[in-house]
C-alpha cells in the first residue's frame, strides 16, 4: 500500500491520538486477544520440555529418572499448570475460529459454524484418548 498523498498526511490542524501502549488492557475482548496470542509462549515452552525429555531419553535410564524428578519441582509444576490453561485456551479459540477461515459449503449453502467446528473437537478428543491409551497401556 503506497503512503497516502501529502494532502492527507501532514495537515497541521488535525488532531491525532496515538494508540497507547496498553491499548489491549482497555477492553476485555482486546485482552482476550492478547492472552490468546501469548498462549504461543507456552506452546514453545512445552516444546522445550519435550526436547529436554528427548535429550534425557537419549542419555539413558538414570538421566531420564533425573528428568522425571526435575519435573516434580513445585515451581515447574505451577508453571506447567499455567501453561496447561494457556494451551487449552489456544486449542479452544483455534477450533472455534476455523469456521471463520474456512467457508465450507455443502449443496450451495454455507454450513453453520458449529458444524464446521464440531469435528475439531471430536478429533481432539480421539487424539487425546489415543495418547493416554498409548502411554498408560500396561505391558
Amino acid at each position: 500500500m503506497k503512503p497516502s498523498t501529502a494532502y492527507s498526511q501532514y495537515h497541521p490542524k488535525w488532531h491525532r491520538t496515538r494508540v497507547s501502549t496498553l491499548w489491549w488492557s482497555r477492553k476485555w475482548s482486546y485482552l482476550k486477544f492478547m492472552l490468546r496470542e501469548l498462549s504461543s509462549v507456552f506452546v514453545a515452552f512445552y516444546v522445550v520440555i519435550l526436547l529436554l525429555q528427548l535429550h534425557a531419553l537419549g542419555r539413558g535410564p538414570e538421566a531420564y529418572l533425573e528428568f522425571q524428578l526435575w519435573l516434580q519441582n513445585p515451581l515447574l509444576v505451577v508453571l506447567n499448570g499455567i501453561g496447561f490453561l494457556f494451551v487449552l485456551f489456544h486449542a479452544v479459540t483455534w477450533f472455534n475460529l476455523t469456521p471463520k477461515a474456512m467457508a465450507v459449503r455443502l449443496r450451495g449453502r454455507r454450513l453453520p459454524n458449529v458444524l464446521v467446528a464440531a469435528p475439531n473437537y471430536a478429533v481432539w478428543l480421539a487424539v487425546s484418548a489415543l495418547i493416554v491409551f498409548l502411554l498408560m497401556r500396561q505391558g
Binding site: 506452546v43 512445552y46 525429555q53 509444576v77 496447561f84 494451551v87 475439531n120 481432539w124 487424539v127 493416554v132
Partner: peptide, 15 residues
C-alpha cells in the same frame, strides 16, 4: 498440531 497434541501431553507430563 499444538491444539490437538499439546494440551494432553502437557497435562500428563506437567501435572
Amino acid at each position: 498440531a499444538a491444539a490437538f497434541l499439546i494440551p494432553v501431553l502437557l497435562f500428563l507430563y506437567g501435572l
